[in-house]
Design a protein around this nucleic acid. Sequence first.
DNA 1: TTGTAAGCGTTATCAC
DNA 2: GTGATAACGCTTACAA
Lengths: 341, 341
Amino acid sequence: MERLNIDKVAKLAHVSRSVVSRVINNHPNVSEEARQRVLEIVEKYNYRPNSVARSLATRSTYQIGVLTSRIGEESLGNGYWSLLYLGIFEECIRRGYYVHFSFYSTSMADELHQYLLNEHHLDGIICLNEEVTDFTVNKLAEKQIPIVLVGHNPNYPNICSVDVNNYDGAYQAAKHLINLGHKKIGGIFGDQNVQETEHRMKGFTDALLEAGLTVDENHKAVGGYTQRDGYRTINRWLKKQPEITAVFCASDTIAMGVLLGLYENNISVPDQFSVVGFDGLPISRYLIPPLTTILQPTYGKGEKAAQLLIDSINHREKEAVHIDLEPQLLIRKSTAPPRAS
Amino acid sequence: MERLNIDKVAKLAHVSRSVVSRVINNHPNVSEEARQRVLEIVEKYNYRPNSVARSLATRSTYQIGVLTSRIGEESLGNGYWSLLYLGIFEECIRRGYYVHFSFYSTSMADELHQYLLNEHHLDGIICLNEEVTDFTVNKLAEKQIPIVLVGHNPNYPNICSVDVNNYDGAYQAAKHLINLGHKKIGGIFGDQNVQETEHRMKGFTDALLEAGLTVDENHKAVGGYTQRDGYRTINRWLKKQPEITAVFCASDTIAMGVLLGLYENNISVPDQFSVVGFDGLPISRYLIPPLTTILQPTYGKGEKAAQLLIDSINHREKEAVHIDLEPQLLIRKSTAPPRAS
DNA sequence: TTGTAAGCGTTATCAC
DNA sequence: GTGATAACGCTTACAA
């Protein structure tokens, strides 16, 4: 049985192609009688309109793109992206949109670049991080395609963005450690020059300050979000800053590295050392010991980003909004009062 | 500056629209002179052909879809999917294809279903697992759209598939434990009724048999691939099968659960108990202790699947092939000889 | 309410 | 080598 198109359906239903189109798109002005005839044929022959042709005619594809950079494999596989993407995906499907997901890695910047510039297949784009934001915004500036950022970026005040309240998250984490009685608390942060890091550092610092604790610059490290970053920092600190009894890590993956470093140095967590993470990844409850962490609504971030994007595709949003979602402290087994020294 | 199309370019270059088309598509039969004029205009006005219109005319979109089911969040975020997807994505981009990635969850089966059936936007589909294979193959059977499976499935001998050599992987893992001197070895396997599981069980069993060891049915568990599955099984075994001194886990995530169970029971790894995983996820080297595991070429699986799919889209493949990639034992810190009892 | 006809932006066929 | 012209399959004025 060969593929049928709108004309064949029209013929079979004894109506014109426009009537078929109206029925399919639930447009008014079609007699009940005609509608039934069309529906019957559609059903019988299982007709589906060709979405490419439809896109050409309407200039919209109901497809959106999600871009993230290909950072180290470690962070790629940490569960954060998957959860975020799931939020985006499900919201899109609910609203009738379909999603492309692309890792942008410098080695293939050109191809992707090329693709995105040519793009007529995408109604909108979600950028999952900094590198990608700069890349995309700069290249797509001239096009009218809507963009939403996951993670606020002060450089693009006119583009919608969604983020977790980074200040609060870090503040809560530090507060938890302080309440437990820790005095010398380290903080290991992620990418430099990102607002996220700045806010987390401020939240962390403010909590210490409020508690009357001094903040030692040697107790702060800024690097990346991978396990390796945590691993290296803790090893350095164990040698040079032995006074530290607890650390706040700006990601659960950093915390994994810290936990491993501690383990290798025979330092027991939480008896001798406390660690709190950030993200609340699904795997964090299976770390050894199960990680106390700041749960951020990762799925929700994705969901919200998709909402904003689709709204702006449909011109429901008049101006750019920047949404903050609230994080939440999740106490597990990696934190305890410091050992009486 | 308004969007230009092929006709405007043709006018500007003083040629017909067909010449422009030929130049763009590198077709022969166009004079050098004309080609230059066209190229110049294309360059000057930064013209890009509209890919939707092109798709309509050529009946191919250069887009492929990747489908996986939304299994528990835990496994979702374990890094395996990300790596696999990365392999697919990069190979596709290299060959000029673009990728859709969909989590298929039962709650949205209908929408997705609907989408896929309508699909004219997809030149081919890669199915990442069992549930999705059945879903897709059954619904898409009548359509001529090429499909490739990640993971062999004996029910679909006529569809190309890529897999790791599961037998070998499990065999190597068991062999490693045996060589270390273990006699009572447990095996925790994933989804029942999947060929993968069958093969891994066989590889595992054969290794024991060859070594003259008895295989106790109580030393085998079949459930799922999540941390929880490993966690539950080890807790049960610790009570009921205390003779076991080592386990082979059919995934690194299962191993994570096992590690946690052992930790909570104050059993030291690898001194008192050995565990080996399967997958070689990036995070496995950051577990406590770093996990001995079977490294499978996850990225390579994705890459190969994309190759097969694109080849079959282009009719380069005459008949279905089933490719096995080789796994490799990766010895880290979670295995050691059994403690002299 | 229905049908006709003009797009949408390409590619492909076929005279010239 | 080049250029009309007809697809591709749909939406959408506009006219009837």
